[in-house]
Write a protein that binds this DNA or RNA. Structure first.
Lengths: 273, 273
DNA sequence: GATGCACCCTCAAGCCGCTTGAGAGTCAAG
DNA sequence: CTTGACTCTCAAGCGGCTTGAGGGTGCATC
């Protein structure tokens, strides 16, 4: 019989942990002095403690360990438990490896530029939306503003209200500054079905835009001409982190002044390669 | 300006997390209604929030993120921080991979035997010890008990007290049941220097036994003839988990009755291959 | 103007696996 | 009989939130 301190030295488990295991009923001392409350342990408890440590080392929670030790589960349940743990760990290893790759990319960037990068790229999902949109080949960049003006002013007349910031989709595979295949989109209520005829003979129509599982996104603050850098940053992030683009990027005009206080989000649908 | 719920939907960050970031000073709302306490957020806060999310995704703590965002550290500190994080993550990936390998080994074993294995192997370090010992070629297994008896009875006469359970070291590379090269050891006080002459003309002497950085250990309960299985289990564990033996194994007689309540620990010094 | 209902607030507790600390009692050696 | 090392219990703390209780707000509808 040892006092807790001796048992702690023997097993290299902290006294506080032994007391905690006692509290949980995971490892009760062989004996407790009923007057002083002193815990006394015996060698016979080593196998049980070792099993606790071994299972803990496999990543099981103390609650799960208690089950394995006491609720003598069926072999079936036992297998299930470990298979689950295996899957969990595989997932975790993958995640940590990806995280490590991201940290290394960020570190290289800091070492090159000697400061934090200007754009932070995050992955997020984008919910399905119902939009009122116009798809068109746009001859030049200045035209974009014109089209936004025309389409926007047509909304109230048609009794349509935008329920989220407008955005556009770029369908060209490569960047071009002329004859761009673009779609101008206004998110509208899910039950809205409309067709609007515009001055130039084109039509805006409502349609569903499916959800995007994963998109690499970044936010640009300032005039639109600066968006370039954001695209560059996003492109680099996507490449160095092992993703690839799987759909047309979107430019969301969160705060659409076009001036220095404009806020624009760029979203690239991506997939892990 | 959005209320917290709208900002939460926009950013896909839970309301409770936004409130928590406010509390930490990590992301204060652009404005707070001084009468109702309602938080109001603006688009301008998106870049900051994105940076928070990006850094969180790299594994930084919120405290570290606050530093990066506000205490604008020197590029030197910044690099240091990320290099540290990199090292941490490399370590973690290794650990999780090893853990996964252990879980997979255990799973295979459960699938073979349809129950938890009888022996749990754990890794631990073994501190340096000062011992009084006798190294000898032992002709046969029954002789072992005899030698323990002789050496043990010589201790009191020499005024030596054992301060931990006795153990023996096995120097043979392979298992043999005859002519075993063994050392019988009694842990004694660090300042004890003695030579004891035994009946057969041999001498026990004191010496230092260095610490073992890592040892694979398991505990056997019961008669000594059952130790075999414990050795088998240990050997298998060492092999399947990618370790190799780097020193003579020890058999520690924790509860040395030799009967069914005997408790023996076997320790193999090991190294990751 | 009353009533819903969805939203917002603050404050406190809970999660896990312990660790740390306060305040008080116990044990063994000198 | 004192000293000092140990033991006990109980409470709080860690991180990054989440959950819930209890109560106030804001806007639309009757």
């Amino acid at each position: 019989m040892f006092k807790i301190g001796d048992f702690s030295k023997l097993t290299q488990v902290p006294v506080s942990a032994l007391r905690y295991y006692d509290e949980l009923g995971l490892l009760k001392p062989a004996q407790i002095d009923r007057f002083t409350g002193y815990r006394y342990y015996s060698f016979d408890q080593l196998p049980r403690l070792n099993r606790i440590l071994a299972l803990k080392d496999l990543g099981l929670s103390l609650e799960q360990i208690a089950q394995v030790l006491d609720d003598n589960l069926t072999p079936e349940q036992l297998r299930g438990m470990f298979r689950l743990k295996q899957a969990e760990l595989q997932q975790r290893v993958r995640e940590e490896q990806e995280r490590l790759a991201r940290v290394e990319a960020r570190l290289r960037q800091i070492e090159m530029e000697d400061k934090m990068p200007d754009y932070d790229v995050i992955l997020k999902s984008i919910p399905a939306q119902h939009i009122l949109s116009l798809r068109q080949i746009v001859p030049s960049i200045p035209q974009i503003g014109v089209i936004w003006g025309e389409t926007y002013s047509a909304l109230p007349a048609a009794g349509v209200t935008m329920i989220a910031p407008p955005f556009c989709l770029y369908y060209d595979e490569e960047f071009t500054a002329s004859d761009m295949d673009m779609e101008f989109a206004y998110p509208v209520a899910a039950d809205c079905t409309k067709t609007i005829d515009l001055a130039g003979g084109q039509q805006m129509t409502t349609r569903d835009l499916p959800a995007i599982h994963q998109a690499a996104c970044t936010v640009h603050r300032g005039v639109y001409s600066g968006l370039n850098e954001a695209y560059v940053a996003l492109g680099r992030w996507i490449e160095t982190n092992g993703y690839r683009v799987v759909g047309p990027p979107r430019e969301v005009y969160l705060q659409g002044s076009g001036g220095p206080d404009a806020v624009t989000e760029i979203q690239f649908p991506v997939e892990k390669t």
